[in-house]
């Protein structure tokens, strides 16, 4: 791992990572809506949720802690963790998902044949399958993002860390200023709970925050080596 980071730093290749401060997250779902709009995600009917077939690249996991009236709500925004040792990658029979130089776990829609092995192998349930042809109300068809492919029925999809924004920001070849590049969820977060940046840059906010004493990664014991770091919520009253 150490050598990998070093070699990518030498090539000046960024390593995109995210930090989510759970102490700041209010569970408002702004990130969910922003992601839906940015990435051409079809509108989910209520029945889709009941069938566990709803498509959300980022979702808020809600937990209740304690008994009424001493009850606490905990929120955990969960998106593709862009694992450095991703369980979804080796199981794809057609090489439709792989790791690129920037530490992104990439999904190539036009290669995907829809075996769903990757989704079954993902411990975070971050991969979603298009069970239906995506549809939007007629009025909303013109708001589709032209930078993002509309996925057809039968392919897997997932959070891309808004790769279209990364491509746009890095097109000129110059280094991206820390904080200038934000995925839709990070941009929309009212409490700035989500921070995105280049972890190969020692001065980046994301690098500083991921080494905070509250840091943890979801299901780290599985050895997936996620690129998303969470900061624990700490209660003052214990």
């Amino acid at each position: 791992m150490a050598t990998k980071t070093k070699s990518s730093a030498q090539r000046d290749t960024p390593k995109w990572e995210m930090v989510i401060d759970l102490d700041r997250c209010t569970g408002c779902q702004a990130c969910v809506i922003a992601c839906q709009a940015e990435n051409n995600i079809p509108i989910n009917e209520e029945s889709a949720f009941h069938e566990h077939r709803a498509i959300q690249w980022i979702r808020i996991e809600r937990y209740w802690e304690g008994e009424f009236p001493d009850v606490k709500a905990r929120f955990l925004p969960l998106l593709c963790q862009q694992c450095d040792n991703a369980p979804c990658e080796p199981v794809c029979p057609v090489y439709a998902t792989y790791h690129n130089e920037e530490g992104l776990n990439v999904q190539v829609y036009n290669r995907c044949v829809g075996t769903r092995y990757c989704g079954n192998n993902c411990p975070y349930h971050a991969r979603l399958f298009n069970y239906w042809e995506p549809v939007w109300p007629e009025d909303l068809r013109n708001q589709l993002n032209p930078d993002v492919t509309v996925r057809t029925r039968g392919v897997m999809e997932k959070c891309t860390f808004c790769i279209q924004r990364i491509r746009r920001a890095t097109r000129g070849g110059e280094a991206v200023e820390d904080g200038a590049l934000q995925p839709a969820c990070v941009q929309s977060c009212p409490t700035s709970a989500l921070v995105f940046g280049n972890a190969n840059d020692p001065d980046a906010k994301v690098t500083r925050l991921k080494n905070d004493e509250r840091h943890f990664r979801v299901m780290e014991h599985l050895g997936t080596d996620p690129s998303v770091t969470y900061l624990k919520q700490v209660d003052v009253d214990g």
Binding site: E101, L104, V106, Y109, N110, T149, I163
Partner: peptide, 8 residues
């Protein structure tokens, strides 16, 4: 020639 250069 990374796939994600053009496909995303």
């Amino acid at each position: 020639t990374d796939c994600s250069t053009c496909h995303y």
